[in-house]
C-alpha cells in the first residue's frame, strides 16, 4: 500500500506526517497528531461528529483520504478559538463555544465538536441565520441527548453576541 509524506497545516501549524495515502484525515488527526477533539461516531459519514474545516469548508474527516487534504489548511475544534482570535484578539474562544456552554447545548458532548465546526462555518457565511438555515446546515449532525432545541438557541445567541463584538 502506498505510503508517503503528507504535509498539512493543522490549526495554523505545519505538520508533516508519514502515512498511507488511504488513511483518513480523521485517523491522522486522532491517532497521529493526537487531536482527539474531533470525534469518531460512525466512520461512515452518517453522524457528522468528525466535522472539521478543510480550507475553511466544513468536511467529514472520516470520509476524507488524507492525501486529498495535502497542502490544505485544516481547522479542528481545538483550533476554533485561535481562528476566532485572529480577527477578535480579545477572546481566545469562539462565541459559539461560550453560547453552547451558556445555553445548555452540551450534554454528553460527543456531537459538540462537529456541531461547533458546522455552526461556525454557518455564522461565518450568514450573519443572522434563520432557524431554517440552521436546521439545513446541521441536518447531517446527529445528537442523541439534547433534542436539538438548545443547540439552535445557542447558535442564534452566538450570532447576536458576534455582532455585538464588532
Amino acid at each position: 500500500m502506498a505510503e508517503g509524506f503528507v504535509a498539512l497545516t493543522v490549526n495554523g501549524s505545519i505538520q508533516g506526517v508519514w502515512v498511507r495515502e488511504s488513511a483518513t484525515l480523521l485517523q491522522v488527526l486522532r491517532e497521529v497528531l493526537g487531536l482527539t477533539g474531533t470525534k469518531n461516531g460512525c466512520e461512515t459519514g452518517q453522524c457528522g461528529s468528525c466535522t472539521i474545516w478543510i480550507d475553511g469548508a466544513p468536511r467529514l474527516a472520516c470520509l476524507t483520504p488524507v492525501g486529498l487534504a495535502a497542502g490544505s489548511q485544516i481547522t479542528t475544534v481545538e483550533g476554533l478559538g485561535a481562528w476566532w482570535q485572529e480577527s477578535h484578539p480579545s477572546s481566545p474562544y469562539h462565541p459559539l463555544q461560550t453560547a453552547f456552554v451558556e445555553f445548555g447545548a452540551v450534554q454528553c458532548g460527543f456531537c459538540t465538536p462537529g456541531m461547533l465546526m458546522a455552526a461556525a462555518a454557518l455564522l461565518r457565511d450568514v450573519k443572522f441565520p434563520t432557524v431554517e438555515e440552521i436546521r439545513e446546515r446541521l441536518a447531517g449532525h446527529l445528537c442523541r441527548c439534547t433534542g436539538y432545541e438548545q443547540i439552535v438557541r445557542a447558535i442564534r445567541e452566538a450570532a447576536v453576541a458576534e455582532v455585538k463584538e464588532l
Binding site: T36, G37, T76, V77, F100, V101, V106, T112, P113, L116
Partner: peptide, 9 residues
C-alpha cells in the same frame, strides 16, 4: 463539564 467539551479537551 461544558467548557472541556466545547474545546475538545
Amino acid at each position: 463539564d461544558a467548557w472541556a467539551k466545547v474545546t475538545g479537551q
